[in-house]
Simulated assay, not measured.
Amino acid sequence: MLAAAAAELSAAGVGSPRPDAEWLATYVLGVERSRLPLAAGFTPDELARYRRLVARRAGREPLQHLLGSAAFRHLELAVGPGVFVPRPETELLAEWGIAQARRVAAERPGTAPVVVDLCSGSGAIALSVAYELPAAAVYAVERSARALDWLRRNAADRAAAGDPPIRVVAADVTDPGLLAELTGRVDVLLCNPPYVPAGTDVPPEVADHDPADAVFGGTDGLAVIRPVVRRAAELLAPGGVVGIEHDDTHPVAVPALFTADGRYADVTGHPDLAGRPRFSTARRAS
Rank of each mutant, 00 (worst) to 15 (best):
V28A: 03
S34D: 10
G82I: 15
L257R: 01
P251H: 15
P197G: 05
A12I: 13
I125L: 08
A155M: 11
A274F: 07
V173I: 08
L75T: 05
H209E: 09
T183V: 10
A198E: 07
D163N: 14
E95Q: 10
A11M: 12
L273E: 13
T268V: 11
P109I: 11
V114L: 06
D247F: 03
R230T: 15
E142R: 03
T43Q: 09
V169I: 14
D187E: 07
T281P: 03
D261P: 07
D149N: 11
G13N: 08
R73L: 09
R230A: 09
A7H: 09
A3V: 11
G199Y: 11
A130V: 10
P194Y: 03
R185E: 10
A106I: 15
T259S: 07
A4S: 10
A274E: 08
R283Q: 14
L2E: 04
V254Y: 02
R35N: 14
A156R: 10
A130M: 09
L182W: 08
G41A: 10
A161F: 12
Y131E: 09
A70I: 02
A6D: 04
P19V: 00
V116S: 03
R56L: 07
A6P: 04
P88H: 14
P194H: 04
A4G: 13
L92M: 09
V14Q: 00
S69W: 13
Q64N: 13
A25H: 02
W96C: 14
P109Q: 08
S69P: 05
P109G: 05
D220W: 02
R152L: 05
S16D: 07
T174K: 05
L178V: 06
I125C: 04
P211F: 04
I98Y: 00
L53M: 15
A274Q: 12
G218H: 08
V252S: 07
R87M: 05
A137M: 10
S286Y: 10
I225F: 03
R49K: 14
G275F: 11
A233Q: 15
A40Y: 12
A124W: 01
A40E: 15
A161G: 14
D220H: 04
T219H: 15
I125E: 01
E8F: 05
T200E: 15
A4V: 15
R185M: 10
D248S: 14
R167D: 12
S34H: 06
D45S: 11
P17R: 00
A265H: 11
Y264L: 08
I125Y: 00
A21Q: 00
A155T: 06
A237E: 10
S120D: 03
G80M: 03
A71Q: 10
R108K: 15
Y195T: 03
S128C: 06
L151A: 03
G82A: 06
A260E: 12
A58D: 02
D247H: 07
D220I: 04
V79Y: 01
L66V: 12
L36G: 04
G262N: 12
D149I: 13
R102H: 13
N192R: 03
L92N: 05
A285W: 14
A101Y: 03
T268Y: 13
G80R: 02
A5D: 01
L127T: 05
P277H: 10
E76L: 07
R73K: 12
I225M: 04
V188P: 00
G97M: 03
A265F: 12
A70P: 02
A223V: 04
P176N: 07
S286T: 14
